[in-house]
Design a protein around this nucleic acid. Structure first.
Lengths: 229, 229
DNA sequence: AACATAAGGATCGTTCAACGATCTGACAAT
DNA sequence: ATTGTCAGATCGTTGAACGATCCTTATGTT
C-alpha cells in the first residue's frame, strides 16, 4: 500500500463512529426519549411493556432493553415487578443537577485549553440554531439548541467521560423543563446570554466566561426550583 | 393509629431502599463484576453469551441484561454483532479518569460542609478496613478499602448523582489496577496517605486535605499511566 | 505470491410463547 | 375499621427458533 493509501486509511478510522449501526433497542430508546422529552408521557406515568411493545411493533425483550437504556439515562425509573415509570423530578433533584452543571461546565471552561475548531463550530452552530428556532417561534427547539451549546462548552475540556456525564445531566434536566408552562419566557432570554458567553470564549476571556456562565446557571436553577415546589 | 405509630411509620420510609430486592440480571452482573475486577477475565477477552449463560445457569436474555448493566458501568464494551469484551484501558483512559477524580473529589472536599456522622464513620471504617487487610497481607482488599475511602470522600458533597459518577469512575479504574504487577507496592503507601487526609478532614482543614488529595491523585496517576504504556 | 471471491460455521440480534412470581385492588370475614 | 383472601394484571425469566452478521478457511484468479 502506498504512503498516501496508509494516510487515507488512517483518516478513515475517524469515520468509524459514523458507521455505527444501531440496534433495535437503541432506536426504540431514541423514540421514547423523544416522546418523553416532548411531554407525551408525563412524569410519573407507567410505561407498560405490553402496550408500548405492541404499539411500536417490537418484542417485550427488545423493549426491556430500551427501558434499561433510558433508566440509566435517568429518564425512567425501574421498580422491580412493577415496571418502569417516567421519572418525576423533585426540587432537590433540580438543585443537585445544577450543582453538577456548575461543577462540570465551569471546570470545562476553566481547564479547557484553546478551543478546537470542531468545538468552536459546535458552539457557534448551537447559537445560530437557537436564533433561527427563536425567529420561527419554535421554543422547544430553542431549548434543545441551548442545551447543545452547553454540551459543546463541556467539550472544551476534551474529556469523553465528562461529555458523557454532561449528556446524562442534560437528559434529566429536560424532564424539569416540562414543568415550565411558558417555554418562550423560559428559553428565550438564555439565547442572548449564550451568545455573550460565546463571545468571551472566542476572545479567550476564560474568567469572564466562567462568571457569566455561573450567573446563567444560578438564574435557571432559581426558576426551575420555583416551578418544582 | 397513635402518634407514635405514625412517627414510626414515617421513619420506616427511609428503609424502603433497603428493601430493594434484586433481579437475576443484577445478581449475575454482581458476580461478573467481581470476577472481572479480580482478574479472572482479563481485559480484551470476549464474554460469550452461550458459555457464560450455561456456566451460570441463566438464559441468554437475562445474561444480556447483565451485560448491558456492566457495559454502562464501563467494565464491558459492547460491539454490535460481535459480543461484549472486557474493557481494555489505554493510558489516555487513565489520564481521563484521574482528571475526573481530581475534579470530583477535590470539589467534594472543598464544597462539602461539615461531614455527617454517617460519612465520617464510613471514612474511618474504610481506613480501618484497609489497615486490617494490610496487616493480613490481603493487598487486593487494601485497594478495595482505599477506593471505599475515596467514595466516602465524595459523599461529603451530599450529592447522590456525584456519588454515582464516582462509583462509575472507580469501577473503571479497577480495570487499570489489574495492570499493576506488585499490588502491595502499589496499594500500601496510599493507606497512610488516606489516614493523613482523614485527619485533616476531621480537623476541618479543608484546603490542607485538598492539597494532600491532589498529590495523592497525581502520584497514583503517574504510576498507572506508566504501567499502561 | 498477492489479491479477490465464495462457502461455512459460529455467534449475535430479535422474536415468540409460555409459566411462575409478584403486585394491586377488591371483596369478604372478623 | 382492620385484617385475610382471592383473582387479574403485569413483570421476570426461560427456551427455542430463525435471520443477520462476522470470522475463518478454502478456492480461484491475476
Amino acid at each position: 500500500m502506498t504512503d498516501g493509501g496508509v494516510r487515507a486509511a488512517e483518516r478513515l478510522q475517524e469515520d468509524r463512529v459514523l458507521l455505527g449501526r444501531t440496534s433495535t433497542a437503541e432506536r426504540v430508546a431514541a423514540i421514547l426519549r423523544q416522546r418523553i422529552t416532548e411531554g407525551l408521557f408525563e412524569p410519573g406515568t407507567r410505561l407498560s411493556e405490553e402496550s408500548i411493545g405492541a404499539a411500536l411493533g417490537v418484542s417485550r425483550n427488545t423493549l426491556r432493553e430500551a427501558f434499561r437504556l433510558l433508566s440509566h439515562e435517568g429518564l425512567l425509573v425501574h421498580e422491580l415487578n412493577r415496571g418502569v415509570f417516567v421519572r418525576r423530578l423533585t426540587a432537590d433533584d433540580v438543585v443537585d443537577l445544577y450543582r453538577l452543571r456548575r461543577l462540570i461546565e465551569c471546570a470545562a471552561i476553566r481547564e479547557g485549553g484553546r478551543p478546537s475548531g470542531e468545538t468552536l463550530a459546535a458552539l457557534r452552530g448551537a447559537v445560530n440554531d437557537a436564533e433561527r428556532a427563536a425567529a420561527e417561534r419554535r421554543w422547544e427547539d430553542v431549548g434543545t439548541a441551548n442545551m447543545l451549546f452547553h454540551q459543546a462548552i463541556v467539550e472544551l475540556a476534551g474529556s469523553s467521560r465528562l461529555d458523557e456525564m454532561m449528556r446524562q445531566v442534560l437528559a434529566e434536566l429536560r424532564l424539569s423543563f416540562l414543568a415550565m408552562k411558558n417555554p418562550r419566557a423560559f428559553h428565550e432570554p438564555y439565547l442572548w446570554r449564550n451568545r455573550d458567553i460565546l463571545k468571551l470564549v472566542e476572545a479567550g476571556d476564560t474568567p469572564g466566561a466562567e462568571r457569566l456562565l455561573a450567573d446563567y446557571l444560578s438564574d435557571a436553577e432559581r426558576q426551575l426550583v420555583q416551578a418544582h415546589s
